[in-house]
Design a binder for these strands. Structure first.
Lengths: 241, 241
DNA sequence: CGTGATGTTGATTGCTGTCAATACGTGTGG
DNA sequence: CCACACGTATTGACAGCAATCAACATCACG
């Protein structure tokens, strides 16, 4: 791994989101993490590596993915700034993780997290909530992959990114390639591109360079995400005129 | 809900699998559950219902599923005897649950489970492991739904059922309809049927009635599950000769 | 300014969905 | 015990969405 420790002084924090409805007024025990930096394309861990750390993204973005023996790939998640990754296996990682862009993150030792969760009930609660929420979002993903059309998937993806990214809610950063998006949505890169073009032609999106789009009509995008097609355009958007 | 309490005397047990590698030698705290019985097709809870109980299947089988606004459905899981269901939401269920066949199960109150998990560290550990394992299996499912072909999905499904069901490992019970299988695998009922026919023609499976199949060639089934096609048959198995 | 990577668009193929008809099997009633 | 009927499963014909193959455009970068 080409990652580089940034500083000797450890970063202090707690990796999991603090459960708001937990009724506790105190904060969970703080952990010390190791700041790390890695360049675009760097492998952070591979499928099968033992789980040593969990990571919190500071800047940049990360993809975790699985590969089938014949090369087919499915990206399991994109981790954006503020988000956690690395919880994809019990003893060994079931996914690999790579930096989509140059990235900075904080590594928290698994053993310390486990010890913390065993000591601190609030930390345990936060961890529990985190795992359950991940579980539910994976179920959403199954519905998307199993039952949604290409353009619905792309629309869902854009809305998801819009909700997760900080900054202007109508400007969406797409740090990953079309190929990555395809492998996240179970589509080919061409189909992703065509769907985006379709939304552009329908006036739902506007290009701000290949890695940034502006949402011009959020309602229409939400309709597209749930399969409600504008009668005029219908599904003709993916076919050449 | 038409479910009926079976007996006044509560069933005693612990709903989650006991983590073997936890290092503990004691058992987790026991909980009392309410035995219930419900007839084939009965709705056990609906999407949006508040989470009151977790259920452990005693006999029969259960499906949990999500429905999109336009009627598309994805079955999230089949729960077989000995398995748990009901953990599909934090405050409210994100899935509905129905009995695939007449079924008997034990309902454990969510509040009691939560209290138990807070009191008993071993119970907490078991719960944690269960959630993580569910998370990983959902990731497997995403790969299946996002990147596998129809016959690969069906083969994976059969292998999964074979591994989960007790009894003769070469005889697989299929209590659910082809329609259910399709909605579990993101396929149409016809495609499921065609895949099964293909395996039958290739000598991999033999019918033992529509709800039971015998695995004649487990190796070939595993090959089919990972996309390794026998050169002669190729993918022609789904096309009419 | 050239060069390679990435993105878009077009043409075609093919897997899987849809529609339709037939077969099977289970359960009921005579 | 058999006949019928309904739900379920299978098979067939066809259509359509998305993958694949291919060419071109655009962008990033040296």
């Amino acid at each position: 791994m080409q990652t580089v420790s940034l500083a000797r002084s450890p970063a202090i924090g707690f990796p999991f989101p603090v459960a708001s409805r937990s009724g506790h007024t105190t904060s969970p025990a703080q952990l010390s993490g190791r700041p790390m930096r890695c360049a675009r394309g760097t492998l952070i861990y591979a499928e099968g590596d033992s789980v040593q750390d969990l990571y919190k993204v500071v800047s940049g973005s990360i993809r975790t993915y699985r590969t089938l023996s014949d090369g087919r790939r499915l990206i399991a998640s994109f981790a954006l700034p503020g988000e956690l990754f690395g919880l994809d296996g019990i003893g060994t990682h079931r996914c690999a993780a790579e930096a989509v862009t140059d990235a900075v993150m904080i590594a928290f030792a698994r053993k310390e997290i486990e010890a913390c969760v065993e000591r601190d009930p609030l930390a345990a609660k936060c961890f529990q909530m985190f795992a359950l929420e991940k579980l539910i979002s994976e179920q959403d993903r199954c519905v998307l992959l199993g039952r949604k059309t290409a353009s619905e998937r792309v629309a869902c993806f854009l809305l998801d990114l819009a909700d997760r990214s900080e900054g202007h809610p109508h400007l969406i950063d797409l740090p990953m390639s079309r190929y990555d998006i395809g492998d996240y949505l179970g589509l080919s890169t061409e189909t992703v591109s065509r769907s985006l073009t379709c939304f552009r032609k329908r006036g739902i999106l506007a290009d701000r360079g290949p890695h940034r789009v502006e949402v011009l009509d959020r309602d229409a995008l939400e309709d597209a995400a749930s399969g409600i097609e504008t009668p005029a355009t219908d599904c003709a958007c993916l076919r050449p005129v």
